[in-house]
């Protein structure tokens, strides 16, 4: 039996591509079967939470509070878009050039679970390949960026949050237009790395997506800068960011389906596609 197990391990490690293809083929139908109890448990979880919050904590006040919170999130997003549009139009007007902004296609999805382990900060959505969702697509809410899709099955997808240390997104400081890379931290926050030393970044500045690469269009809010680290001898500054999105209260998200994946994945043949969480700038 030990020999059998050792053989299995060696197949997994020596033939990673082949074993992954095999696992993907087996995983597809299994994931669809498990999606049924998962959906049931997600509904139970949702109803438990709603019962607790709704009936025990003054139902009407809670409902109104929730509506207003959604409105605030939506307005924050709009406000951010307007600010971004203003900055953009100023710059473009100065150049006497206008470029039409391309609106991304989006797909709404419900959050049905959290990562199956404690080692990743990720969420599971109730939409997958059947709904046009694929690996490397960006995920947002009206308030800002949530993360990127790293794994899909026909009926579900796994989204790695921007607060996960394995995630990296290209971003820029809205006021100063300095670009950098946003990474998650072990503490569950995010940080903007590689800010030029001469940048006039300050606490309170808003960080948005730079739109330089595939998953996210330019100008989506990521978060606000709360701390700036500048050590002697370093070539760059680093800023700590508090994300705009409250990841503990995520219920619905939007997946940007029009974005092109950065690199090829093994998702051909209509099978489950996976881009395991590795540090990569989408």
């Amino acid at each position: 039996m030990l020999v059998l197990f050792a053989l299995l391990l060696s197949v997994v490690f020596l033939l990673p591509k082949q074993s992954r293809g095999l696992l993907q083929n087996i995983g597809n139908p299994l994931a669809q079967v498990i999606a049924l109890p998962l959906g049931a448990f997600a509904a139970l979880d949702r109803s438990l939470m709603e019962a607790w919050a709704g009936y025990l904590a003054l139902r009407q006040v809670h409902e109104e509070n929730r509506r207003l919170r959604r409105e605030i999130l939506s307005l924050r997003g709009q406000n951010n878009e307007l600010r971004e549009a203003a900055v953009t139009s100023q710059r473009l007007a100065a150049l006497l050039e206008f470029k039409e902004r391309v609106e991304p296609q989006i797909q709404a999805a419900q959050v049905i679970g959290r990562d199956a382990t404690n080692w990743y900060r990720s969420i599971v959505l109730n939409k997958g390949e059947q709904d046009g969702i694929g690996a490397e697509m960006g995920v947002i809410t009206p308030a800002g960026v949530v993360g990127r899709v790293v794994k899909t099955t026909p009926s579900s997808s796994v989204v790695l949050l921007i607060t996960d240390p394995n995630n990296a997104v290209a971003g820029l400081i809205q006021r100063t237009r300095d670009e950098g890379i946003i990474e998650g931290t072990a503490q569950g926050r995010a940080r903007l790395k590689y800010i030029p030393l001469l940048s006039a970044v300050r606490v309170g500045d808003t960080v948005v997506t730079s739109g330089l690469t595939g998953s996210f269009p330019r100008g989506l809010a990521i978060g606000g800068i709360t701390r700036i680290e500048k050590e002697e001898g370093d070539l760059f500054q680093t800023a700590e960011i508090v994300p705009e999105v409250d990841f503990m209260k995520l219920e619905e998200v939007l997946v940007i389906t029009s974005a092109l994946p950065l690199q090829e994945t093994d998702s051909g043949k209509g099978s489950m596609s996976a881009a395991p969480a590795k540090k990569r700038v989408p």
Partner: peptide, 11 residues
């Protein structure tokens, strides 16, 4: 099954 719904690799 855990790997199917986790952000890590399939192994």
């Amino acid at each position: 099954v855990q790997d199917l719904f986790s952000a890590g690799g399939l192994w």
